[in-house]
Design a binder for these strands. Structure first.
Length: 617
DNA sequence: GTAGGGTTAG
């Protein structure tokens, strides 16, 4: 009843009163009265009530102390949603009044929403200096100015308006306003995530220069930005430099560095970091253990990974799903599927909810073991638990099919993914191209990788290595070398696999001089030749029937800490056999067996033929 | 409300 009377009066007022200063105040009073009595409903039902609204009125409504902040917000949201119905939208001043009232009411989340509207609206957004001077003119409160700047800073960060965030920061420094480190941290993190490494580092430097208090959190973020770009040496420099200013690294900082070395597979440096942690009395946590376990997984050292898994539980470090994923993946890579699945049961019994990562690891394990059908079943199981097929799992399954030459299935799978809106990525292209190489379809494989470039997917170093492998198998070393040089020029550093690919190409064709040159080059740039490098070279020497040179390489391996693989033994045994040196061949055969390798057909054949050769001599 | 770890290709 009261509402109806009020609305009638409201309407009468709108019809009779011309727009003027005093009627502005009356209209504002009417709106406030209505809001207090009946909320926003009357305006929703009769938007024409606000047809005379102008920014002055909005201003008056928001600044009316009788209207609670909650009603202000309701009214603000209504105006935002109905901008076409009202003749003018709230101006910057009205926004700031609202922001101030929300500040007083300690409603910071709402404050942030309103400032977000300011930041996103070109007609409202003034320079921070101008906005702050407007604030000083109206409210003489340092704390409010600081909070205003802080929230504006964060709003710009949230919207990735990085130049504006930087502007607010500089303004605060210049004006001597207190700066919140958490806000700066979100800026650092956002820059890092957007791959703006230099900006991230530069901002960290500005933080330090500004004299504000800095914690290990910000430092670790800057260090991580460097590590993710492989700039570990600079990261360590920064850590030392900050240590001099009293900011000590903690378990997260060390984990960041460890991660970088795990990625590089640099066991020596990893040990150095572990020693440093011990000296600093920094205990390992779940993250540290995860990193170390995945490092062992890289080298197939399942037993060591298992030892760590036990150790962490003995020490009372909580095992989480990421730890499980790592140890499961480790067992999968070693072909230890039984153990992997029993760990999977373990984690579900403990109440963890399996996710795409764990499933991904198991599916890959099954695919690599050639059990693609079981992998398919697991994918269905995964989906029935509400986890959707993602690009990684898709690529994993694709590889399972391609490695077994199941082209039809891989095409069907691709169709499924395209329906889901996933275009093949650089992994998918590479997987299919490699599959084609195995079927000796080199031209098709090349065409596919070129098609990838046409579609705008940038070739990464793995894709280029695949191409190098194709060209060198074809004997086209001109093209292989051109790609290799181009890769270096583009700053995509070749790694051991890249070098080994090209070396393998040369040795297969008996071009030993070029192969040794590359081995020297890789050592010079700090990449240690591994068992693949040695096996290729040794195999090449065998092809050239220089068995003594091959034996020299074989004997060099243990000196460099390299363990001959089954492929190494196969090459050297068959090389020796061909030369009729069956005695040495048998000696190495026995050595191979004691090293735990299962000999394959080729070894037997060459051993048997060596008996014929030596017998005829 | 803050930083660091897990699944795929050569």
């Amino acid at each position: 009843m009261a509402t109806r009377r009020l609305l009638l009066a409201f309407k009468r007022f709108l019809q009779t009163s011309p727009s003027s200063m005093s009627s502005n105040q009356e209209l504002a009073a009417m709106i406030v009265k209505t809001l207090k009595l009946s909320g926003i409903k009357p305006f929703e039902n009769t938007p024409s009530l606000l047809s005379n609204l102008n920014s002055r009125v909005t201003h008056l409504v928001f600044s009316n102390p009788k209207l609670p902040p909650k009603s202000c917000i309701l009214f603000f949201k209504f105006l935002q949603g109905n901008q076409s119905l009202t003749s003018s939208k709230p101006g910057l001043h009205a926004h700031l009044i609202l922001v101030f009232r929300l500040y007083r009411a300690r409603r910071f989340a709402e404050m942030r929403n309103v400032l977000n509207s300011v930041a996103m609206d070109d007609s409202l957004r003034w320079s921070v200096a101008d906005m702050v001077s407007m604030i000083w003119d109206n409210w003489n409160e340092q704390k409010f100015v600081e909070k205003f700047c802080d929230i504006l800073f964060r709003v710009y960060v949230d919207n990735k308006m990085f130049d504006d965030s930087g502007g607010v920061f500089e303004y605060m420094v210049k004006s001597g306003l207190k700066i919140d480190e958490w806000s700066c941290l979100s800026y650092l993190t956002a820059l890092k995530k957007c791959d703006k490494t230099e900006e991230c580092l530069g901002f960290f430097r500005r933080m330090v220069e500004s004299g504000m208090e800095i914690t290990v959190y910000s430092m670790t973020t800057a260090i991580d930005a460097l590590c993710r770009k492989g700039r570990v040496e600079e990261a360590i420099e920064l850590m030392k430099e900050m240590g001099g200013q009293g900011i000590k690294p903690n378990v997260a900082t060390y984990a960041t560095i460890l991660h970088a070395y795990v990625k590089r597979k640099d066991s020596k440096r990893i040990d150095e970091v572990l020693n440093l942690m011990e000296k600093d009395k920094v205990c390992h946590d779940a993250v540290t253990y995860t990193l170390l376990m995945s490092h062992y997984a890289d080298f197939g050292q399942v037993k060591d990974a298992d030892k760590l898994f036990d150790e962490m539980r003995e020490r009372g470090v909580k095992v989480d799903i990421q730890v499980y994923t790592t140890i499961i993946s480790c067992h999968c890579k070693a072909g230890n599927l039984k153990r992997a699945f029993s760990l999977f049961d373990d984690l579900t019994e403990k109440g963890f909810v399996p996710n795409a990562y764990v499933y991904g690891a198991l599916i890959d394990g099954l695919c690599k073991a050639g059990q693609v059908e079981a992998a398919e079943k697991l994918v269905i199981d995964m989906q029935s638990r509400g986890i959707d097929l993602n690009p990684v799992v898709f690529n994993t399954l694709l590889d399972g099919y391609c490695k077994r030459g199941m082209i039809d299935e891989s095409l069907k799978l691709q169709a499924v993914m395209q329906k889901k809106g996933f275009e093949p990525d650089e992994f998918a292209y590479n997987i299919i191209a490699s599959g084609m190489c195995k079927l000796k379809q080199h031209d098709e494989a090349k065409r596919l990788l070129f098609e990838m470039v046409e579609k705008g997917v940038v070739l990464n170093s793995v894709n280029i290595t695949t191409l190098i492998s194709i060209y060198s198998r074809e004997g086209n070393f001109n093209e292989a070398n051109r790609l290799f040089r181009e890769m270096k020029r583009k700053g995509q550093k070749p790694n051991a696999i890249t070098y080994n690919t090209l070396i393998g190409g040369y040795t297969r064709k008996g071009k030993m001089k070029e192969a040794y040159q590359l081995k020297d080059e890789m050592e010079n740039v700090g990449i240690m030749p591994d068992e693949y490098t040695y096996t290729s070279l040794l195999h090449g020497e065998c092809i050239c029937r220089k068995i003594d040179a091959a034996m020299k390489l074989f004997n060099e391996m243990p000196q460099r800490g390299l363990v001959p693989s089954l492929a190494t033994y196969t090459a050297i045994i068959s090389g020796l056999s061909k030369e009729g040196r069956s005695h040495e061949a048998h000696r190495l055969y026995n050595q191979m067996i004691s090293a735990g390798h299962m000999p394959d057909e080729r070894v037997y054949t060459s051993l048997v033929s060596s008996l014929h050769t030596s017998g005829s001599q």
